[in-house]
Design a binder for these strands. Structure first.
Lengths: 154, 154
DNA sequence: ACTGATTAGTTAGTTTGTCAAACTATTTTC
DNA sequence: GAAAATAGTTTGACAAACTAACTAATCAGT
């Protein structure tokens, strides 16, 4: 294994662990302390479709978790007042999830944190370097997504 | 927010999630299916010091989790036969953790998986690109590590 | 138009990983 | 040699995810 491999190997685990930890703490020390990072990421996923809202299945797909996990998590967020569930009129089985006003506010705050983090990382990198970093992580992502799909089809 | 920021932002969360998922499944479908990815990563951390073994504190620091979490997790791994705990002779408070033969075997297998993944990502990247990718992620890592330390000092 | 299959989501119960708080045991320090 | 610091443990709680068994709505084929 060459230097690149060894480095990337260790780095990934370490970096991602740190990111989650920091986000967790950032959240805990914020005003909206009744939310975990996980729940914030759920809000983030819900926010991706502002008009119609996202269905439970959409969210599950997006986050790569099971339907039941989403149901439970969304119910909790609904109870806390961050999202609302709206039954589809055309198809009685489907449920659309939308952010409430409070949900939007909190999500915006978290996005700001993210932007800040990325700005910090980007500082001192050339356009080319940034591009390569994104490409590299994209490759990582594709590699894993492909594997995930393959597994799920089984 | 520019393109870079938006992309990196979404990518990180997504990639990380996928990696853990894939590893989880890889583990479950392997022979040693009584281990979670988390437990494997713990083995990985323990493996970093082959001679003396790592103390509970070392591991906690390395993984950014609390002492109590490590105690519980290591005890479980010890029960399953992947590590052993050895009391220090010079300092009766300290406990060294070492991989058993089985632990080594399983860890080696997991490392192989990691190497494979990295090789896949590296394929088609020039030396320069690889270097930049590592530098980029290193920067990310440093950014978060710094924040973590700052928080812990409070 | 029925009926069986599929799809969307829910409920219940379990597992895993983490934490905080209170504790024991062993050095260290003064 | 008493007080403080360090290393680790125990306990009880909680979050997030899973699987399995379920309900309800829609679709498809005859």
């Amino acid at each position: 294994m060459d230097l690149f491999s060894r480095e990337l190997n260790g780095l990934l685990a370490d970096t991602f662990r740190s990111i989650l930890k920091i986000e967790e703490q950032a959240v805990r020390n914020s005003e909206q302390s009744d939310l975990s990072i996980n729940e914030l990421h759920l809000l983030e996923a819900v926010a991706k479709d502002k008009e119609k809202g996202k269905t439970i299945s959409d969210i599950a797909l997006d986050m790569n978790i099971t339907l039941s996990s989403v149901t439970v998590a969304i119910n909790k967020l609904a109870r806390k007042g961050y999202v609302e569930k709206i039954k589809s009129e055309n198809d009685g089985r489907r449920v659309f999830v939308k952010l409430t006003r409070l949900g939007h506010k909190v999500n915006a705050g978290h996005q700001y944190f993210h932007e800040n983090m990325v700005r910090n990382v980007a500082a001192g990198m050339t356009e080319e370097e940034k591009e390569i970093l994104v490409r590299g992580i994209t490759k990582l992502n594709e590699f894993f997504k492909k594997r995930l799909e393959a597994r799920n089809k089984k």
